[in-house]
């Protein structure tokens, strides 16, 4: 017979152990979620869409929201239908670009869905002044046959225009957004998940150890009596045996 508290260990430690298991479980789930975010649910490091110019629509442009897709930069390459033609790609303040485009017919990228551009086709004018000849661009590139521009993330609303001469549509515009790698949530999931898992495991271990005798019980020798029922319950729980000095045979 052990020298244990009259109240049984099971009734005192079961809820704490349950809580520790729950905490460990939540921690493990959070770790799994974090792992999934950097593997199977990972955001691609690039989003690339290809937009073909359409007859009668002399420019391909983006809305401010589409150009601002999260990420440090977007790389835009425009190709002319004829390699001998000059092409233009430029980015300007959204308001200025809107004023320049006016009612010009255009192929407008309003967002992306997977690896496809979501397009709109506003405007009806089939030509507009050559974009290289106006001064609404904060950054612009021209080139023979093709031109490439890298637009870094910048405060404000910006729109992109790709064109040839204001009358001929470009053959193709490739927009390549460099995306954010993960997000602030992923490290947080790893951190919180790991912490909870460790706490849970420690808790489980602690509840095991706390089933050792004496702690919380009467001082040795002050109460050596206990009833059989309690003793029976003790038998249900694997109790770590206390060292010899605290062990005693029940006296009848």
């Amino acid at each position: 017979m052990t020298l244990l508290s009259p109240s049984t260990p099971r009734s005192r430690f079961a809820p704490a152990r349950l809580a520790a298991v729950a905490v460990a479980l939540v921690g493990a789930l959070l770790l799994l979620a974090a792992l999934a975010r950097v593997t199977v649910w990972a955001t691609p490091s690039h989003t690339v869409v290809r937009v073909a110019g359409q007859a009668g629509k002399p420019v391909v442009d983006t809305t401010a929201a589409a150009l601002a897709l999260d990420g440090p930069s977007v790389r835009v390459t425009v190709r002319a239908p004829d390699p001998g033609q000059n092409v233009f790609v430029g980015v300007g303040r959204a308001g200025d670009v809107e004023a320049y485009l006016g009612n010009a017919a255009r192929t407008e990228v309003t967002g992306v869905r997977g690896s496809d551009a979501v397009l709109a086709t506003p405007g009806s004018e089939t030509s507009l002044p050559e974009p290289g000849g106006v001064d609404v661009w904060a950054l612009a590139m021209t080139g023979r046959g093709s031109a490439t521009l890298v637009w870094p993330r910048a405060d404000g609303s910006w729109r992109l225009v790709a064109a040839v001469d204001g009358a001929t549509p470009p053959a193709e515009v490739v927009l390549d957004w460099q995306r954010e790698h993960g997000s602030a949530l992923t490290p947080a999931l790893f951190g919180v998940g790991g912490l909870l898992l460790v706490l849970g495991l420690v808790g489980i271990g602690a509840t095991r150890r706390r089933r050792s005798p004496v702690l919380g019980g009467p001082a040795p020798g002050t109460d050596l009596r206990h009833d059989d029922e309690a003793d029976d319950e003790d038998d249900d729980v694997p109790v770590e045996q206390t060292p010899a000095p605290f062990r005693s045979e029940r006296r009848s």
Binding site: T47, T63, A64, A65, A66, L67, A68, L69, D70, R93, A94, T110, G111, V112, R113, G114, V118, D135, W137, A138, D155, G156, S157, W158
Partner: peptide
């Protein structure tokens, strides 16, 4: 199949013509 777009930030106070322009 949701459409992805970004959110442009508030317009910074800059001149109508930037020095580079």
């Amino acid at each position: 199949s949701s459409v992805e777009t970004g959110t442009p930030t508030a317009e910074p106070a800059t001149p109508a013509v930037l020095p580079g322009q």
